[in-house]
């Protein structure tokens, strides 16, 4: 893994720019961190929960960043997969983006009302969850990279 190039939020929630990319990905999925670490900023919450991911995204939204992908992408249920990846703008707007805020709050509601996660005992399943999560976020890359700015 390319730890040196990954992003981590400081306890204060601050971060530094290592990449010139216009988007960043908040994720708890090591496969996403590894596969996309050279293409954009990764806010990697190692061992973080899906809630940690969405809450981190929410904090960024509070700082006027915009959510670029559906926070609960895919049909794999929150009580099944432990992995979440969300793309967020690097640039900040002048105010909170209402749509982004609504999306993360709805996502937190869905996570909040879903029951305890299934135990995934098999490492192969864990890897499959990572693979699907990676694929979901990758599906947004052609769209985000097709335009010059966000």
């Amino acid at each position: 893994m390319i730890i040196g190039e990954l992003w981590r939020l400081t306890p204060g929630g601050e971060q530094e720019t290592l990449h010139t990319s216009k988007f960043q990905i908040v994720t708890n999925n090591p496969m996403v961190a590894e596969a996309l670490g050279e293409r954009c900023h990764i806010v990697f919450l190692e061992h973080g929960s899906d809630r940690d991911v969405i809450e981190t995204v929410r904090d960024l939204v509070h700082r006027h960043h915009r959510v670029l992908t559906a926070p609960l992408a895919g049909s794999v249920k929150p009580w099944e997969t432990p992995y979440r990846s969300v793309m967020v703008s690097v640039s900040k707007g002048t105010a909170i983006d209402a749509t982004s805020l609504e999306l993360v709050e709805f996502a937190l509601m869905v996570i909040g009302q879903s029951r305890e996660r299934l135990e995934t005992t098999k490492p192969s399943i864990d890897r499959d969850f990572q693979t699907v999560d990676l694929s979901l976020i990758e599906s947004a890359l052609p769209s985000v990279e097709a335009i010059g700015r966000i």
Partner: peptide, 8 residues
Amino acid sequence: ENVYLDDK
């Protein structure tokens, strides 16, 4: 039904 919000 895409992942990317601008697509939606």
